[in-house]
Amino acid sequence: MTTAILTADGERALRARSSGDASAITLFPALAFMAAFFVYPLCDILWKSVSQPRLGMQNYVWFFTNDVNVAVSLRTFWTALIVSVVCLVLAYPYAYVMSTARPRMRILLLAIVLTPLWTSLMVRTLAWIVLLQDTGVINDVLERLGIGRLQLIRTTTGVIIGMAQMLMPFMVLPLYSVMSKIDGNLQLAAQSLGARPSVAFWRVYVPLTKPGIFAGTLTVFVLSLGFYIIPALLGSPRNTMISAMIQQQVSGLLQWGRGSAMGVVLLISTLLVVAVFMRLSRGLRLDGVGRP
């Protein structure tokens, strides 16, 4: 059954590829747009990073010899990793319920996940400040419950809560799209062959959702790397991420060479992460998900 689906997918992909020549003209506007507004600025950034204030690699030498830059970069990747894991843990059961719910319920669940995307970033972040601050709603409730007040705002926890909420849709949607295509009978079949429900879930269901897990985690991780406003408003200066450091160099100090070099380093390390993910997900298909 799954094999049949994959084959159909493959055939569709092949057909799309063969009609590529004819669509070259229709691609042109988008490519021209990307060249003018993405490729050219990117080249300019690359050039600035080795030419300002003078030709040479001084900006990169500065970046890697400065402890703060290295520490903040590591912190940025670490924060992105935690956010990805938190999103995955929360989104997985949610997407599962969505994939099994009746249509009306499914639409409601989808709307709940998408609402944050339709709300202005600033409004949402300020709402989090109101909720998380020392004298905020959450702390008032905690105190009334006898748990006592927690320091939530200006901590890593606060930053992760804010970022995870914002990025949740990017995890839920790919998971849901994969889960909705999984045949529920597969788990029943596993159980009829003697697997306990938990074994059927972990050995049959979860591996089938791996493409969704990879797609969602990668998207959330990469998007997390560039976060700026949420760490600034919900975190302390000790939660600074690399985008804030770039902003300081570009806007505060007018050191565009340094700012550009930081951007290039961030871009390259992100590409490396993507490459690693691609490698892992290719191995996944070789694992033989759905293959005979």
């Binding site: 400065n66 402890d67 703060v68 520490a71 903040v72 200066p237 000790r238 600074t240 450091m245 300081q248 505060g252 100090l253 050191q255």
Partner: peptide, 14 residues
């Protein structure tokens, strides 16, 4: 420039 570098080190906890 030196001041800014020292300052960033301090505020980011290094």
């Amino acid at each position: 420039q030196e001041f800014a570098d020292r300052w960033s080190a301090w505020i980011s906890g290094n």
